[in-house]
Amino acid sequence: MESGLMHHVALWLAAFLTLGIFSFLYRDNTWYKVCEAIFVGISAGYWFVAYFWDNLYTKFWVGVWVTPMADRPDDWYVLYVGAALGILMLLRLVPKVGWISRWPLAFIVGATAGLYLVTYFASNVMLQIEDTVRPIFGAENDAPIYEIIGNIVVAVGTFTGLIYFFFSKEHRGAFGRAAKVGIFFLMITFGASFGYTVMSRMSLLIGRMDFLFSDWLKLIK
């Protein structure tokens, strides 16, 4: 693969697709549309194949038909439950009994909500509250000035941010002013986040440019 004709064909194909997508920056055109259609088709196909082989075949088919009885886990028959739910989902294709497909959906939503009730509560609420509550001047009263400022920012930011997202009270008076401070903190956070994203986008562009100029054209070492 690495050498010979196939290597050159693969390089040109990749470059053709990369440049085709880039051409959208100039304007929408046929080349872009072709690349877009190829991308959409291949990715949808890839997901289908990945799910088919990793779930349907490796987990269900192998688990139920291929694996010898002795090697199966105690609860191997649960695979049938999963398969049954999967079939119920496909009943949507039969309009008369289509409503049954809501059951597996309810199962997914319920299980996810159950899992997250505990984990979100523990990790995103309780642990984060505990971490926000800190002595402003440090545990030994010896925090350097930047750390004190940091602690104040975290405490005030969390407090006012929570006020902004409090929906049971109109944003008026002192409460409204606190919410306004909260939105300020949010906007500053968004700014920082935006900066990181510019970095991310540039990285992706650099990655592609590196491919074009170093792997494809071999102009750059």
């Binding site: 991308f39 959409v40 088709g41 291949i42 990715s43 949808a44 890839y46 997901w47």
Partner: peptide, 8 residues
């Protein structure tokens, strides 16, 4: 369309 993020 597709499950794939950027394809979408």
């Amino acid at each position: 369309v597709t499950d794939e993020q950027f394809g979408y």
